[in-house]
Simulated assay, not measured.
Amino acid sequence: MTNFENPDLQVVTTKSRADKAINSLKGLLLGIISDDIIDAQEMEELRLWAKEHYDLVNRNPFREFMLLIENTVANGIPPKETVEDLYWLCQKYEHGSIYYNGITSDLQLLQGIFHGVLADGMLNDHEIFKLHEWLSENEHLSSYYPYDEIRSLVLSIVADKIIDDEERTILTAFIKQFVELKNSDTAAKIEKDTADVNISGICAVDPEIIFENKTFCITGILSRGNRSELQKAIQDKGGIAVNTISKKTDYLIIGDTNNACWSYSCYGRKVEKALDLRKSGHTIVLVHEFDVFDAI
């Protein structure tokens, strides 16, 4: 076996290449955004960077990088936003390695627990109390999605030590968002059992949306049209459409199409900022794109 064929050496080499690639990307992004103007040639250079490093696509966070770059033009996402998202991802990788640290491992473990408790198609009382016990023992996950949300829900359910069918169904509906069951019959049963439950994760459920003089920001990829169409519809209803989230933002609209940046160890730059603003006392509502389109 040659040195290059040695699996241990390949792992080290790939990690080294990944680190070097991310550092080069970070520098490229800083250079592109330095004049605060991003043109087609600069976006093409990013596309070529992605092409050159495509062999790393299966290594986090390169899949996210590739998707962001590919989706910019196709979905009408402003180039500046893409560059800012890419730089944010670079920083996440660099500071604490969000993809590889213990937090991520525990969040992945939580997802596995979700999978396990739904494997037979139903949640029993013992499973719910065990989930409550695990959540109580892992408070270091506080502020990471979906820990805060699932813990709040479970706490409200077990508070009286009695779990009724409605509570069980709501919890099942929430957990199923993070599970891809291999057994199609079990998955179909859960879908049927929770069909009448509206759970939108970090988004407000059945929100009241007021357009007049309210500020709206969009993140992610919309499944019902493009950003410019939705922004115009918001403006026609008396709302204000912006591209950057701030303390003045009233609503953050989250696109339905799956965005790799929202794997739940990493919300996405705008969603993370919105949650930080909420924790600081600012009133900002996270709404699903379907709710906005329905209100329009």
Results as ranks from 00 to 15, higher is better:
E191V: 01
L171M: 08
M122W: 00
K279D: 06
Q235F: 09
S223T: 03
R47Y: 14
G27N: 15
W134Y: 13
I190H: 02
H140W: 09
N101K: 06
T14E: 14
P7C: 07
L155R: 02
D125R: 05
S142Y: 09
I22T: 06
W49P: 03
L86W: 02
T283K: 09
M122P: 00
T257L: 12
A21W: 04
L25R: 03
E52A: 14
D291S: 09
I240N: 08
E139I: 11
L252V: 10
D193N: 03
D196Y: 12
L286W: 00
N3L: 13
N226V: 08
D39P: 08
N101A: 03
K26I: 07
Y267L: 14
L171H: 06
E166D: 11
K279F: 02
D148P: 00
T14F: 06
L109A: 10
D39Y: 15
K214W: 02
D85I: 11
L181S: 06
S200G: 03
K232Y: 04
E133F: 05
N60P: 15
N3A: 10
G121P: 09
I199K: 09
H53D: 08
E127G: 01
D164K: 05
K51P: 11
T13Q: 09
A21T: 13
A159E: 15
L56K: 12
K270E: 14
G27A: 09
K232S: 13
N213W: 01
N198T: 08
K232M: 08
E133G: 01
H115D: 10
A260R: 07
L28A: 10
E272K: 08
M122H: 00
Q111C: 12
Y100S: 09
N258M: 08
D196P: 10
V11D: 10
Y251L: 07
K248I: 01
S97Q: 06
E94H: 07
N198H: 07
I98Y: 10
C217K: 05
M1I: 06
E94Y: 08
V197L: 01
S16T: 15
S24N: 15
S263V: 13
A187L: 10
R63V: 01
P146L: 06
L135Q: 04
H115L: 10
Q235E: 14
V287D: 06
I22P: 02
N71P: 02
E272W: 07
Q41L: 15
D148H: 07
K279R: 14
Q231E: 14
A40H: 12
L29G: 01
D36N: 15
L56M: 15
S200M: 12
I175R: 01
V158Q: 03
D236R: 14
L9E: 02
L28F: 15
L29M: 10
K237Q: 15
T244L: 05
N3H: 07
N124P: 00
I209G: 05
S228H: 04
V197Y: 13
D236G: 06
P146I: 09
G112R: 08
T219P: 02
D35A: 04
F293C: 01
I128S: 01
M122C: 00
C203M: 12
L107Y: 05
